[in-house]
Amino acid sequence: MQIATCPSVLWFSGPEFLVELIFAFITVIIGFYAYKVFKLSRQKSILLFGLGFLLISFSYFIQAILNLLIFRNVMTADIVRAVTGNPLATASIQLSVLATIFHIIFMTAGLALLAYVSLQKRGIKMLLLIYSLSFVALLFSTNPLLVYYLLTSIFLLFISAQHYQRHDDVRSYSTLYVFLGFGMLFLGNAQLALSTSFGLLYISGLIVLLIGYLLLLGSLVRVVKK
């Protein structure tokens, strides 16, 4: 599988590491809290929801750590010289590809699980279908990064639509936060997809994603504090 790395803006590599760590931190909080609720309720959907967020957290954590290593490598080498054979940069490029592959696998697995949990009718066959279609598309595509962004955008759009419907029925601040949170994740993800052509969209995409994750955290805080 030939894979391009996730688009990034070089001068943003340092802050990018911090933003990814924040994403990892927020999603791990939601994942662990879901596990705590599962232990009391024993509802399978809650366990899968928590697992989905933990997979997403893992994808960000790995990417953040590898991006930090890349950032350190780039800081110690001349990037132009490096691309033409400098061993430090060669290592950076390999790390970047590795970070992207891990990020794609865990993020796709996590979002597929969240999309499955948001379905009204669930079943193991449905879950297997979602996973097999997603990973076959990623594996056999000539442009896996584009397929990844399309897949994750579809998942997030679907999840947002489900939560909009839900908010329309329940009408509470918590459901509103969850709907807006997933909606922002969709918009942020779409901007990251377009950033392959317009580099600055990468930064605005990360900011919109941050707002999305903060809204989801806000909903969790409302649930716990009420």
Partner: peptide, 22 residues
């Protein structure tokens, strides 16, 4: 006793994130 104390939070979590069982 823990379940009774946490019940409201569990219900709010399930309602907020749309995790009701089928």
């Amino acid at each position: 006793y823990e379940y009774l104390a946490e019940y409201r939070t569990v219900v709010r979590f399930i309602e907020s994130f749309g995790l009701e069982e089928e």
